[in-house]
């Protein structure tokens, strides 16, 4: 049985008829063609599919479309403005915090939420905020340094 929901994604309203059991990660990727959000474990463990709902990180693999009805969703695509990457995205490139890139959108959204809420986190707070995101390439050090480099900017 389909139902109508309104998803506000990156400032744009989408009225969609959905199966109530459809997850937001699938809708973003398959229906809105926002493939920046990556899907991996589907168990809330890896953090790759992290998006912001009303400004806070959530796992979009565990978020059903009706749960997101009327809520504000932000994905990694929202970080770039007029063809320019955000300072955090630039820092990820500068510091080598991106290798295979699969986890990167999740880290970027988690760190974006951290910096919006707490503009001057110390190293401990950065590590604490990122503890739910897995990266199998970088060893985390460069990611932490990249986030620290934009603190205060």
């Amino acid at each position: 049985m389909t139902m109508d929901v309104t998803l506000n994604v990156n400032g744009q309203e989408h009225k969609l008829a959905v199966e109530p059991t459809e997850t937001v990660v699938n809708i973003l990727r398959n229906r809105l063609e926002l493939t920046g959000t990556h899907k991996d474990c589907s168990m809330g463990v890896c953090g790759a599919c992290t998006v912001l709902m009303n400004g806070r990180p959530v796992s979009s693999c565990l978020l059903l479309a009706p749960q997101a009805d009327g809520q504000e969703i932000r994905t990694v695509e929202s970080l770039e403005h007029d063809g320019k990457l955000s300072p955090l995205q630039e820092a990820f490139l500068t510091f080598g915090a991106v290798q295979c890139g699969y986890c990167t959108p999740g880290f970027l959204m988690t760190a974006t939420a951290l910096l919006e809420e707490n503009p001057k986190p110390d190293r401990g707070e950065v590590i604490e905020a990122l503890k739910g995101n897995l990266c199998r390439c970088t060893g985390y050090k460069k990611i932490i340094e990249a986030v620290e480099s934009v603190v205060g900017q």
Binding site: G44, G47, T50, M53, R56, P57, V58, S59, L62, L63, T110, A113, A129, K131, G132
Partner: peptide, 9 residues
């Protein structure tokens, strides 16, 4: 409990 993503939801 887990991490921010899980605690928020």
């Amino acid at each position: 409990i887990a991490c921010g993503r899980i605690m928020n939801k």
